[in-house]
Deep mutational scan, measured.
Amino acid sequence: MEVRTIKVFTTVDNINLHTQVVDMSMTYGQQFGPTYLDGADVTKIKPHNSHEGKTFYVLPNDDTLRVEAFEYYHTTDPSFLGRYMSALNHTKKWKYPQVNGLTSIKWADNNCYLATALLTLQQIELKFNPPALQDAYYRARAGEAANFCALILAYCNKTVGELGDVRETMSYLFQHANLDSCKRVLNVVCKTCGQQQTTLKGVEAVMYMGTLSYEQFKKGVQIPCTCGKQATKYLVQQESPFVMMSAPPAQYELKHGTFTCASEYTGNYQCGHYKHITSKETLYCIDGALLTKSSEYKGPITDVFYKENSYTTTIK
């Protein structure tokens, strides 16, 4: 009895394709271990004539594949690729409408935090270190965002349907971005203890939790000093293409032309909904596939993004 075979390709990165001759009487799992086709788990399936010449994702289970996976995804987590594939199996079914010149995501599976993050990423200057993220990001900007969303979920250790947080998501993504040249110098002034300067680099240099107003941050924000008295913390120097200011959701007025974009969060910790506000020729609110415009805006804002380049204080 002759062994019926077909020729397929296996890959971990969709760049390096490895030619395989597979036995049609055995499952993919018996031949390769966990195997995925377009995100779908085909591990328990036997090869079919229609699979001839198709590319299958496999887990990096030998040295060659491990090197290829690390170079593309910059992670050695053995569960990463499987999590990416199972997320992709959902995100490829989502709709990605162009809204006001940006790629958004039609609401499904509690994905409003991903839509808000995706919209924000198209408006701030950011370059990702893992080629996987950078490639998928370019495709997302062009309207094909399924891979990018699935990668975000995998890097953030999230599953489809789980509630997510924009600030946490951005923080994970910033860790995989090139923020080497970003720098922030802060000064804390206390009447009792004097003053202390701190220099922050990388992710810490672009994120701040405690106030939404970048102007206020430049002037000074009140913080408790270690001595128990009130101290003032203010920005001395900022070198970065953008800054992200966050605070627990509270009524906040966004003035046209003073910011790049913002995240609105309605609801409580267990259950809520994100919308995205962007400042173009007027203010726009993007909620999944829905767009509304207004000249002014007041609502429960939790993150505001500002364009920056270089700032030095005039406070002496």
Results as ranks from 00 to 15, higher is better:
Ala115Met: 10
Cys156Asp: 05
Val3Ala: 12
Gln238Met: 04
Asp303Trp: 00
Asn187Gly: 08
Lys218Phe: 00
Thr258Asn: 00
Tyr208Cys: 03
Ala69Met: 14
Tyr306Ala: 00
Thr5Leu: 11
Val42Glu: 03
Thr312Gln: 13
Asp77Tyr: 02
Thr64Pro: 09
Glu71Gly: 02
Tyr84Thr: 03
Thr199Phe: 04
Thr266Ser: 13
Leu235His: 00
Ala289Cys: 08
Tyr72Ile: 07
Glu68Trp: 00
Pro97Asp: 07
Val3Arg: 13
Gly257Gln: 05
Lys229Asn: 14
Gly39Met: 08
Pro47Val: 05
Thr278Arg: 01
Leu163Phe: 13
Met170Cys: 13
His176Arg: 10
Lys201Met: 08
Asp165Thr: 03
Tyr234Pro: 04
Leu290Asp: 14
Pro130Thr: 10
Lys191Gly: 12
Tyr36Lys: 09
Ile45Asp: 15
Ala87Trp: 03
Lys218Glu: 02
Cys225Met: 03
Lys54Gly: 11
Asn89Pro: 07
Asn110Lys: 05
Gln197His: 11
Leu133Glu: 06
Thr260Pro: 03
Phe56Ile: 12
Gln30Ala: 13
Gly164Leu: 00
Lys229Ile: 06
Tyr306Lys: 00
Cys225Arg: 01
Lys106Gln: 14
Glu2Ala: 12
Val203Arg: 10
Ile105Ala: 09
Asn187Gln: 11
Gly288Gln: 03
Val206Asn: 08
Lys233Pro: 05
Leu126Ala: 06
Ser279Tyr: 01
Met170Arg: 02
Ser79Val: 12
Arg83Asn: 08
Ile152Lys: 01
Val99Asn: 07
Gly53Asp: 11
Asn309Arg: 13
Asn157Met: 06
Gln222Val: 08
Ala136Cys: 02
Val188Asp: 00
Pro249Phe: 12
Ser79Lys: 13
Tyr57Ser: 06
Thr302Pro: 02
Cys227His: 03
Gly194Met: 03
Gly220Thr: 04
Glu52Met: 11
Asn111Arg: 00
Ile223Leu: 04
Thr211Gly: 08
Ala87Tyr: 02
Thr199Trp: 01
Phe259Pro: 00
Gly257Ala: 04
Asn129Glu: 09
Cys182His: 06
Val243Gln: 00
Lys275Ile: 04
Ala231Leu: 03
Ala136Gly: 07
Lys44Val: 11
Lys255Pro: 08
Gly29Gln: 10
Tyr252Leu: 07
Pro78Glu: 12
Glu281Ala: 03
Phe259Trp: 08
Val58His: 09
Ser246Pro: 07
Ile45Ala: 12
Ala132Pro: 06
Lys95Cys: 10
Thr282Met: 11
Ser181Phe: 12
Pro249Glu: 00
Pro224Ala: 14
Ile301Pro: 02
Leu163Tyr: 11
Leu235Met: 01
Pro224Gln: 15
Thr282Tyr: 10
His18Thr: 10
Ile223Ser: 12
Val166Arg: 02
Glu168Asn: 06
Leu200Met: 08
Val304Leu: 05
Lys54Gln: 14
Ile124Gln: 07
Thr258Lys: 08
Ala69Val: 10
Ala205Asp: 07
Gln175Phe: 04
Gln123Cys: 02
Leu118Pro: 06
Asp41Phe: 06
Met24Gln: 14
Gly202Met: 01
Leu118Ser: 03
Thr199Ser: 08
Leu235Val: 08
Thr226Ser: 14
Leu163Gly: 03
Cys182Trp: 02
Asp109Ala: 05
Val3Asp: 15
Gly143Asp: 03
Phe305Lys: 04
Thr120Tyr: 02
Phe80Trp: 04
Ala136Phe: 10
Val99Pro: 15
Gly210Leu: 05
Gly39His: 10
Pro249Tyr: 00
Thr232Asn: 02
Leu212Lys: 01
Phe128Val: 05
Lys201Ser: 12
Gln230Asn: 09
Gly267Glu: 09
Tyr36Ala: 04
Asn110Tyr: 08
Asn100Ser: 11
Ala247Trp: 05
Pro131Gly: 11
Glu168Gly: 06
Gly29Ile: 03
Gly288Tyr: 03
Leu153Met: 10
His90Trp: 06
Ser294Gly: 05
Tyr172Ala: 14
Pro47Leu: 05
Asp180Gly: 12
Ser86Leu: 14
Tyr113Glu: 02
Pro47Ile: 03
Met209Ile: 10
His176Ala: 06
Cys190Val: 07
Met26Asp: 15
Pro97Ile: 10
Phe242Val: 03
Lys158Thr: 04
Leu212Cys: 07
Ala150Leu: 06
Gln238Asp: 04
Lys127His: 11
Asn61Phe: 14
Met207Trp: 12
Pro241Ala: 09
Ser294Asn: 10
Val206Gly: 04
Thr75Cys: 12
Lys255Arg: 10
Ala205Gly: 02
Tyr57Phe: 13
Ala140Pro: 04
